[in-house]
Write a protein that binds this DNA or RNA. Structure first.
Length: 546
RNA sequence: GCCCCCAUCGUCUAGUGGCCUAGGACACCGGUCUUUCAAGCCGGCGGCGGGGAUUCGAAUUCCCCUGGGGGCACCA
């Protein structure tokens, strides 16, 4: 079936109710023009295969036919914590690997020795583990691979595809600034590209050279991005970028290419900020006579002001979210949907379904605003749907951190904690909130002046509180059922609105107007503490009710 | 200055020429439940940046404009 037939069939099958009129239009409709033919770029051999009609399925078929397993990598530079954006990139890579039964590789891009730290590596790894993004290979380190870079650079030098450059970083910087000021594109002027060996000898005496790539001066490099389609770059506008620094360390563009090639990476899934680097890398693959991987450039994640996500916008690292009590499954769910969608309605989606359904095809092209509010809602949802036992386990460290839990809870305490968490579960948007929500369970009550003023100043309060105290005191089994029975009958007896008797008790016992359900709260507090608080509350009643 | 990407409710998004009176989710607003707060349920508000072109028909295709973003390092 050719493309045109396939398309019209597709259209018709989509229609549910077809009016006669429309059918007539359809029959006289001009056939769709074939997709515009683009002249294949010899430099990028893969392009013809990934022609625009290709679907993800076709693509995966091709990969299978080639007997090529999917291999993707996450390659952070260890200069800080794992950021939201990096985490999403890692997630998409991981999902893609899982979906395609391929390999997910972790590689640390630490060629910049001055900015890379061991702590950052640790932090990134710990965040990845917390998110559940386990890798099949690595972590590899670029600093461990210098000889490979040197060998390749030598080869390019021999083939005249690279050359020594004797300009110093300082010279370059001043030229760059001048260019910028003059309003001309700040590119390297290629002055060392055509140096004679005599000139080189002279310069070599006092300067250590860097090695630059001899970029083709004409032609077009086309990259075929899985998310964006074809993107064209004019070679003459590209730069003779540095491959190896004077100190022998490789630059990013050089190292990625060599590593991705050595590790047989099939799909490079990374942030859109790398798009302008891609033609340089493709050119390098060409120079090395190897096929570039497939590229997929993810849209950026931005703040509410559409500027790159930064500390100004609040927490940006995964670790911070972890410390605030976000659940990894909420994080994964939210991040997955930040730039990808399954269909017109799916908002909550499990990790397994994500693996099953993820596709690069459905990644959106536009930058996404990180919406903390939605993340919070989603986290609340996950908290509500997490088994209490697991929730307790997650919450214990938060309690310990503020000193609400001095020692490991015994069985009794554990069951008490479970009942408490059960009560607070549907009120928490993140785990750390338990501290404020439930503080009156862990330390003595502090009566909030506003609540006291508003609730305890009513004339019936003294009576309500004293009677409630009395009745509760006579209870043998201080459980929520008995408490409820007692207090409800008291309320009926007094002929007050439920609110008029329960709110004063709540304030007396918790110190504020908002708490979990009253009867359960009283039970959890225990008879002794409950009665004690009720008694003491009666002594601090505002004068208007006295 | 040059190159590149992007553009649907406030936000995340669905949408690939007629199923669109543009769908879902968060947020917001109302109602309901209720001893408070949540949660839940029901309902509401709210959007195709602008202009041309193609077509019987455009959110959807093409061009221009505008706006946003990324990049232009011996950073990654």
């Amino acid at each position: 079936m050719d493309i045109i037939t396939r398309m019209s069939v597709g259209c018709m099958s989509k229609k549910k109710k077809t009016s006669d009129e429309l059918d007539i239009y359809k029959s006289i409709r001009k056939p769709m023009p074939p997709p515009t033919k683009v002249i294949p770029d010899k430099r990028h051999k893969l392009k013809e295969e990934w022609f625009e009609e290709q679907t993800e399925q076709d693509l995966q078929q091709v990969i299978r036919d080639k007997g090529q397993a999917v291999r993707v990598r996450f390659a952070p530079s260890p200069t800080g914590y794992l950021h939201i954006g990096g985490a999403r990139t890692a997630l998409y890579n991981w999902l893609f690997a899982q979906k395609n039964k391929g390999s997910f590789i972790l590689r640390i891009e630490d060629t910049d020795r001055t900015r890379s730290t061991e702590e950052a590596i640790e932090a990134i790894i710990s965040s990845l583990k917390w998110l559940g993004l386990d890798w099949d290979e690595g972590p590899y380190r670029q600093t461990e691979r210098f000889s490979l870079y040197h060998g390749t650079a030598q080869r390019l030098l021999d083939e005249k595809k690279a050359y020594f450059c004797y300009c110093t970083p300082e010279e370059l910087e001043t030229r760059r600034e001048e260019a910028l000021k003059a309003g001309i594109p700040p590119r390297y002027d290629r002055r060392c590209r055509a140096l004679s060996s005599e000139q080189r000898r002279v310069l070599e005496r006092e300067r250590k050279p860097a090695i630059r790539f001899a970029c083709p001066l004409e032609g077009v490099t086309t990259i075929s991005d899985l998310i964006r389609g074809e993107v064209h770059f004019e070679n003459r506008l590209l730069d003779d970028f540095v491959l190896l620094r004077a100190d022998g360390s490789p630059t990013y563009n050089f190292a990625v290419v060599i590593d991705d090639k050595a590790m047989e990476i099939t799909h490079v899934i990374r942030g859109e900020d790398h798009l302008p680097n891609t033609p340089k890398q493709v050119l390098l693959y060409n120079a090395l006579n190897s096929e570039p991987p497939l590229f997929a450039h993810l849209p950026m994640i931005v703040g509410p002001d559409r500027k790159p996500l930064s500390k100004r916008h609040g927490a940006t690292s995964i670790e911070e979210y972890r410390n605030k009590g976000y659940l990894p499954e909420a994080m994964v769910n939210y991040l997955a949907l930040l730039g990808w969608s399954l269909d017109e309605k799916t908002t909550l989606i499990s990790r397994n379904e994500l693996i099953e359904k993820f596709s690069l095809e459905r990644v959106s092209k536009a930058p996404a605003v990180f919406d903390i509010g939605k993340l919070e809602w989603m986290n609340g949802y996950y908290i509500r749907h997490t088994p209490v036992k697991r929730l307790v386990a997650e919450i214990i460290p938060f309690l310990e951190r503020v000193g609400y839990l001095a020692e490991a809870p015994d069985k009794r305490k554990m069951s008490w904690l479970e009942r408490l968490v059960f009560l607070e579960q549907e009120r928490m948007k993140n785990l750390a909130e338990i501290i404020k929500l439930a503080d009156f369970f862990f330390k003595d009550v502090e009566w909030d002046p506003k609540s006291v003023e508003k609730i305890l100043s009513a004339p019936e309060v003294p009576k309500v509180l004293s009677m409630a105290t009395e009745r509760l005191e006579s209870l043998d089994r201080f459980d929520s059922r008995g408490i409820e029975k007692t207090l409800r009958s008291l309320q009926k007896e007094l002929g007050f609105h439920p609110r008029e008797v329960f709110q004063p008790i709540r304030v007396a016992v918790t110190g504020r107007m908002v708490s979990p359900p009253l009867f359960e709260t009283l039970e959890l507090l225990g008879k002794r503490r409950a009665i004690d608080r009720l008694r003491r509350a009666q002594k601090i009643l505002p004068r208007s009710s006295a």
